[in-house]
Nucleic acid binder design. Structure first.
Lengths: 264, 264
DNA sequence: ATGCTTCTACAACATAGGTTATGGTAGAGG
DNA sequence: CCTCTACCATAACCTATGTTGTAGAAGCAT
């Protein structure tokens, strides 16, 4: 039996009890493979499932009326996709793949069941949502108040940083499978200008545009260029999770107590 | 005794049981008044509380190294502030006021307690987080792929739309207390260009820059200019909440059962 | 009133980034 | 092998928006 990708992901945050693990596994259908450039859904379609990315790269986007598009976020292995549609019956963004990938679907409605059965998992889900927000926030800053050069550097560095929490190999030079059109649509720039900017950064020996992607040569220096401050990726959650774990124990105790009594 | 502002806010989403109401009220200290331009916190400070806005306007921002700043979101009465720091021990953005205001604080740590005691409230909190994300997403699109004119129109219209769900009077012309510097910092433009753009929109009879704010004269036409699609503000959540309510009933039943037995 | 400060207004000039166009390369598929 | 399709590269030219600077109006403290 394969190791569930969502369990692996959650154990990045906190050790899980056997019960939590069973619970998580229960809401996961087996992973499914998709080809590069597949569109998993378009904006407007009904949204009934979340997905976890177990292999490969994905991105969400929004098509504009004038034919342009905005890329909103990139997903790497271990990320959860679609959480933000919790409050919506329809997809508010499209999802497509940057590489061949494997994703696991699980139904939205079962999320509340999980909440009811494990306080710890409920808290972790909430934290993941908070982290997603922090990333979007930083992306906002990026679009609003940085030059093209800084934008590109910051975007690349952030993704490199996120990859570190993954089982993707990040030793040596890192190659990100991000074509220049995608960078343009993510950063609100034109492809031409992305190209100009990459050339500049290449001349400074910071990166190397390769076919269909970018190879990072000097992450440290890129962080410098970007004015990158990793604070928004470093959650500090142990307090909260301890609290949740204790509360869970109290609940369990109450239940067991009642059960014991009723069995006497 | 005053009506809790957070209860009012939550009842926008769903009717609450008496128990839910008590629970919510329990985590709320009484509202406190703050003066216009107060800074409630700076980025980097420890974050121990959430706030609900019961009166007035607030905004979050991020100061950049080069002295510029990015305004990230505006808050109107009924909004919850600080949820995104759930996963962080420190503030990742600053919070300041646009007008005299009243806010209620409640401690972060108690949120997990609420989660454990009411599935419905837990779900509503999650939905609010999802909605916040949807708003940030739209703001991203705004910054990435729209002209100054569209940006301004979209931003103003969105806020007008959000005000409708509030007990603020939205009949007649709406005056938003947003100075031009704030618009600039929110939309990634210079004050001068904001000024130019407002002048244009004023010539088209769409709005009227008033002292320290903007009066909207023709929201319909502004929506046209912005290409505004309100979908991202219209959650569809009844399914999820029904589900949560049922699950809560099942849990309660199990508990009561056990209790009854133990008291026999 | 007097002077602060904050916000608005507008002009002249500068530039980052957009647009259009053309050509190149590498892989995918018949 | 040839064609198609992605993606990349570079050039010439254009414009939306930024920068700097100056000035006036409105609110606020003394």
């Amino acid at each position: 039996m394969h190791t569930s990708c969502i369990i692996k992901h959650f154990e990045n945050y906190s050790p899980l009890t056997e019960r939590d693990r069973t619970l998580l596994a229960s809401l996961e259908k087996s992973p499914r493979a998709y080809a590069r450039n597949s569109v998993l859904w378009e904006q407007g379609e009904p949204s009934r499932h979340f997905y976890t990315v177990s292999k490969g790269w994905a991105y969400t986007y929004r098509n504009m009326h004038d034919g342009t598009r905005q890329v909103l976020d990139i997903y790497v292995p271990g990320d959860i996709v679609g959480l933000r549609e919790f409050a919506f019956s329809h997809r508010i963004t499209g999802l497509a793949l940057l590489s061949d990938a494997e994703l696991c679907a699980f139904p939205k409605t079962r999320l509340t069941d999980v909440f009811s059965q494990s306080l710890l998992l409920c808290n972790i889900f909430f934290m993941i949502a908070a982290r997603d927000q922090a990333i979007l926030l930083e992306r906002l800053v990026n679009l609003g108040r940085r030059s093209a050069r800084e934008k590109v550097a910051h975007f690349l560095v952030e993704i490199a940083e996120r990859l570190k929490k993954t089982d993707v190999d990040t030793s040596g030079n890192l190659r990100l499978p991000l074509p220049q059109v995608l960078l343009a649509d993510a950063l609100g720039l034109s492809v031409v200008h992305i190209n100009r900017t990459l050339k500049e950064l290449k001349n400074d020996n910071l990166l190397l545009p390769t076919n269909g992607g970018v190879e990072l040569l000097n992450i440290k220096a890129l962080e410098e260029v970007a004015g990158f401050d990793p604070g928004y990726l470093e959650e500090n959650i142990d307090d909260m999770l301890d609290h949740a774990r204790e509360a869970q124990l109290r609940i369990d105790a109450a239940f067991t107590n009642a059960d014991d009594n009723s069995e006497e």
